[in-house]
Computed example of a mutant assay.
Amino acid sequence: NCSNNYGPYQHVEKFIPRQITNILDGQRPKLYGRGENVRDWIHTEDHSSGVWTILTKGRIGETYLIGADGERNNITVLRMILRMMGQAEDAFDWVKDRPGHDRRYAIDSTKLRTELGWTPKHTDFESGLAQTIEWYTENRAWWEPAKAATEARYKQQGQ
Rank of each mutant, 00 (worst) to 15 (best):
L24P: 02
L24R: 10
D25A: 14
G26F: 10
Q27E: 15
R28V: 05
P29H: 12
P29E: 13
K30A: 13
K30I: 15
L31S: 10
L31D: 13
G33Y: 03
G33I: 04
E36S: 06
V38I: 14
V38E: 12
R39I: 10
D40A: 12
W41I: 02
H43D: 13
T44I: 15
T44G: 03
T44P: 00
E45L: 05
D46A: 03
H47Y: 15
S48P: 00
S49L: 04
G50Y: 08
G50T: 06
G50V: 06
V51T: 04
T53D: 03
I54V: 14
T56V: 10
T56L: 14
T56A: 08
K57S: 14
K57F: 11
K57T: 14
G58F: 11
R59D: 11
G61K: 11
T63H: 08
Y64E: 06
Y64C: 04
L65C: 09
L65P: 00
I66T: 08
G67H: 06
G67P: 00
G67T: 03
A68G: 01
D69R: 09
G70K: 07
G70P: 02
G70T: 09
E71Y: 03
N74S: 14
I75Y: 12
I75T: 05
T76V: 13
V77H: 04
L78P: 01
L78M: 12
L78Q: 12
M80A: 11
I81Q: 08
L82D: 15
L82K: 04
L82A: 10
R83A: 12
R83E: 13
R83S: 08
G86R: 14
Q87W: 02
D90R: 01
A91S: 09
F92E: 05
F92A: 08
D93A: 07
D93M: 08
W94L: 07
K96Q: 15
K96R: 15
D97H: 02
D97L: 04
P99Y: 14
P99E: 15
G100F: 01
H101F: 08
D102V: 14
D102G: 07
R103H: 06
R103K: 10
R104L: 14
R104G: 08
Y105A: 11
A106G: 11
I107R: 06
D108H: 12
T110F: 00
T110G: 02
T110S: 12
T110C: 03
K111V: 11
K111E: 14
L112R: 02
R113L: 00
R113K: 07
T114A: 11
T114G: 02
L116Y: 02
G117N: 06
W118M: 03
T119M: 06
T119D: 08
P120C: 13
